[in-house]
Write a protein that binds this DNA or RNA. Sequence first.
RNA 1: UGUCCGAUGGUGUAACUGGCAACACGUCUGCCUCUGGAGCAGAAGAGUCUAGGUUCGAUUCCUAGUCGGACAACCA
Length: 566
Amino acid sequence: MEESTSKEANTVRSLNFIEEIIEEDLRMGKNECRVHTRFPPEPNGYLHIGHAKSICLNFGLAKKYNGKTNLRFDDTNPVKEDIEYVDSIKEDVKWLGFDWEDREFYASDYFEQLYEFAVILIRKGKAYVCDMSAEEMSESRGTPTRPGRENPYRNRTIEENLDLFTRMRAGEFPDGAKVLRAKVDMASPNMHMRDPVIYRILHTSHHRTGDKWCIYPMYDFAHGQSDSIEKITHSICTLEFEVHRPLYDWLIQEIGIYAPRQIEFARLNLSYTVMSKRKLLELVQEKQVRGWDDPRMPTICGLRRRGYTPESIRNFADLIGVAKRDNVIDISLLEFCIREDLNKRAMRIMGIINPLKIVLDNYPDELVEEMAAVNNPEDPSAGSRKVPFSKELYIEHEDFMENPPGKFFRLAPGREVRLRSAYIIKCESVTKDPVSGRILEVHCSYDPATKSGMPESNRKVKGTLHWVSVKHAITAEIRMYDRLFMVESPDNAEEGKTYKDFLNPDSLEIKTGFIEPSVRNAIPGQKYQFERLGYYSVDYDSTPDKLVFNCVVPLKDSWSKKEKTK
RNA sequence: UGUCCGAUGGUGUAACUGGCAACACGUCUGCCUCUGGAGCAGAAGAGUCUAGGUUCGAUUCCUAGUCGGACAACCA
């Protein structure tokens, strides 16, 4: 005991590289020793498990160092954004268990300020209005290995630029006619420094600012400054923004405002799924799945609907760690997290998915007994419930074999087996369809002395089966899910193939199950362990008349695994 | 043929900042069990991309190379 506590005390968890940077900054007394992070989504899609990693990171860091985290929407592109997405993002962050308090911000809140920043740049001769078309611009920008060319508009006077930019804002020019560019260095080895566009004309109304603006800042001109305005101390983002950092630094330096410290980490990849907003959107639009919250989707709302808990996702985010190298996390780690959580909390019930009828020949025809069943062996406080037992029962079809192999511990002719929370039964005979040879029902005898809880019930038998009384069972729709893709990395498609070629045609299987009556009033979101099968969550489609369950994750099954590897 | 970033078991992350590699998932044994779940006990699995160098000593530092990733949207 003492040893174990001292062992735990000695296991000081090592810091990840971001925590190391933060602690170093704290030691140096930077930012008055504040830690202030932010989660900055663009409201143009639903959040997925990769965002969950970032959310847990940002909010977790602030919590650890007594700081704050803002929720800020980087809503600089009205053509792709929508209020639907901001609502879903807020819901998802909240559901994950994080609170941004009163700090819900929008880059669009800063449009006026950003405009002023642009004017500062123009006045300093560090920005100019450019009339080139997108094609011309891309042509003159060069390539990563070849420097770009300077263009004639680069040398417009400050006065002319000021005038033109004012008229851009006033709506004098059509979309695409002009842009405002930062004047940095057309020969920079970093493409982002080759006079990047910082404002474009878009006569599109914005979900928050309406028609107030017809010019909108580019992300690169809004993101860093927004962090600066919010006095973010550590701007944590994914690796692909590493090359943008010199631009952000340049902008902030030239404008002369507070400089946050940007730290980049590797985004999450999960095996057997895709993680890009674009691809997830395609799956939704092409109806490959039933929507953003389809339980097969790696979206947060999909995982929620599937039956994942916020705790399990937070724990997952914790276990995967943070680093800069590319990674692909095995989906089995996510599954481990939800099993671990639900094992401690989910009520156990009995349900049959592939029914096989058994008849207890020596059981009184009309008798119904109420069997006491433990709700959760992991949690004594969960109590117990009554489950009706009668002469005719359903068991799982896979739990019976006529000619079983060696290590089969379940029901077979002449064999005894325990019915969970009930009696030990013995298989006496099998009735088959004379034509097809299919097993119709199995006849058994029960041993009245072995009722669960009774003194003589301790007899050891090899197997225990779950069951449900035929006349008391309620039916339910059971949605079984398999991985969405058949290969580990659907993104790495060989020539001529796309991730969609690897979609698993059997990722959804709908079955009708027979469930014990105690769950009749189950409400959507309620989670259960169907004993010996897996964890199931009541779907939103469920009604009192028609229960619908989602299989969250099956229980580990060392028997079927052994069979499969044979 | 550029710039930046990275490289540790099947996977992910560590290694107290130079002292012969740890934790978790997964895998495999055994025990236990009225869930073949859970739990318990144990095992296998990397000598840290390569080659040099510094050092008594390198996963940690230096150099060169190899491999992988990111970057050429009026997207974010």
